[in-house]
Structure formats: C-alpha cells, structure tokens
Design a protein around this nucleic acid. Structure first.
Length: 227
DNA sequence: TCATTAAGTATGC
DNA sequence: GCATACTTAATGA
C-alpha cells in the first residue's frame, strides 16, 4: 500500500510524502463486505476511520428495532470521529454498503494528528460542518414534506452522492433496496415499492433488485418539491 | 395520506 | 430450493 492513496484525502492534503507515509504506517487497513457492521452505536470509541473505497451507511437503531439511515460516507471521508465531538462512545452504527476498504487509527492519535498535521483540524471541521448542513436539510424535509416527496428527496440525495451518468440515465452506484430507501425517508418498504412502481410506469425511474437508476432527474426533482 | 397486513411473484446464491 | 427482494391489494387509522 502506497502513501499516495492519501494524497487525495482532504484532511491529509497538506502533508508531505514523508508525513503521509508515517500516518499510513500507523494505520490498520481492513476490507468489509456488504452489510458488515464496523462499529455499533454505544460502543467505546476506540478507533477512528477513513474510508478509502466503497460506501458506509451511518444508521441509528430504535428501541423497537427499526433503523433510520442518517447519512452516507464517501471515499476520502472520515467516520467514527467521536473524539472530534467530544464523545467516548460512538453515537451511531456504521455499516458497509457493498465492498469497502478503510483505514483506522487508535483514537488517541486524533489529538496528535490535530496538533501535528497541518490542515487536519480545519478540514475535519469542514467535514463535520458539511454533515451538519446535510442533516439539517434532511431534517427539514422530514418536517415539511409528505411521504412521496420525502422518498423523491431520498433518491435525489443518493444521486447527489452516488449518481453515475450512463447512456441515458443516472444510475445509483451502490446497492439500494426498497427498505434502504424507506429507512432514509421515514417510510415503509411497501410505500417505497408502490411509489417506485408508479414512477417506473411514468418513465421517471428504472429499477431492478438492489439497483435504481433515474431516467428523468428533473421530473423527480419536481416531485420532491412541496406543493 | 399513509402504515399495516397479508398473500403473492421474482431473483439469486 | 430456500432466503431475500419485491409487488400488489385490501383495510383501517
């Protein structure tokens, strides 16, 4: 594994090759398959993580066993950064979406990186800030929109993060089930299934098992708007 | 307007 | 061939 994989990572962007090498040498690399849980909500926050490849779903599990997906992590982003917000335990569960490759470090190194790595603190503040904005947007959607609009919003959020243009559509590049979309939109898999079937008839989306692509993004955006 | 129940079909390891 | 993903309709809050 070469230190150059870290040059694209925002929080290490200002480090020279030697420093990157040192950071890398102190990390542990792991690989996980779809659905594997990396840490659970409430676990002691012993390590922090950097996603190199794949995607991570951050979710909370309700007392009745229901799950709510709060956000997704992209390659190059940190996760499990309890230290950054002054916590001793993880506030949410992190699970792999598809195959993932990630690095991790013992949590005590967080303070050391923040002190010794130029740009690390500033970049992680940015990242945390961006997530706050994202969560705020999602929260507003939950509070103000009807289910159909929320489901449309959830799909658009997936497109924003994982959309890849194909010949005549925008495919979501990670596996997503109806249940996943329901957990992102505060709905049920049945309602999501019904909505997707309807939109498929209207030529707005096209879906197979665990795979969704959007044929007509503007019309989906229109559905996502209230009114 | 939407969740729940229930009963089915399709798909993939 | 079995578990998982998905569809559809009916019911009722």
């Amino acid at each position: 594994m070469d230190a150059s994989v870290l040059t694209m990572v925002p929080c290490f962007r200002q480090l020279g090759h030697g420093q990157l090498q040192a950071v890398l040498e102190r990390s542990t690399m792991r690989r996980e398959g779809d659905g594997s849980v990396i840490f659970h909500e409430g676990d002691d926050a012993e390590r922090f993580y950097l996603l190199l490849d794949g995607a991570i779903r951050v979710l909370r599990i309700m007392p009745d066993g229901e799950q709510a997906v709060t956000l997704h992590i992209l390659p190059g982003e940190l996760f499990g950064i309890a230290s950054a917000i002054g916590r001793k335990t993880y506030p949410a569960t992190a699970a792999a979406v598809g195959d993932c490759v990630y690095l991790s470090w013992p949590m005590p190194l967080w303070a050391e990186f923040a002190e010794t790595c130029p740009g690390f603190a500033v970049e992680t503040f940015h990242e945390v800030g961006n997530r706050l904005v994202e969560l705020n947007t999602t929260l507003t959607q939950f509070a103000t929109k009807l289910v159909e609009q929320r489901v449309a919003c959830a799909l658009l959020r997936l497109v924003e993060k994982f959309g890849s243009k194909t010949h005549n559509a925008t495919a979501i590049s990670i596996p997503v089930t109806r249940k996943d979309i329901a957990e992102m939109s505060g709905s049920t898999l049945h309602t999501v299934s019904r909505l997707l079937s309807g939109w498929e008839k209207d030529g707005i989306v096209s879906s197979r098992r665990k795979h969704v692509e959007i044929i007509d993004v503007p019309r989906l955006s229109a559905l996502a708007k209230s009114g």
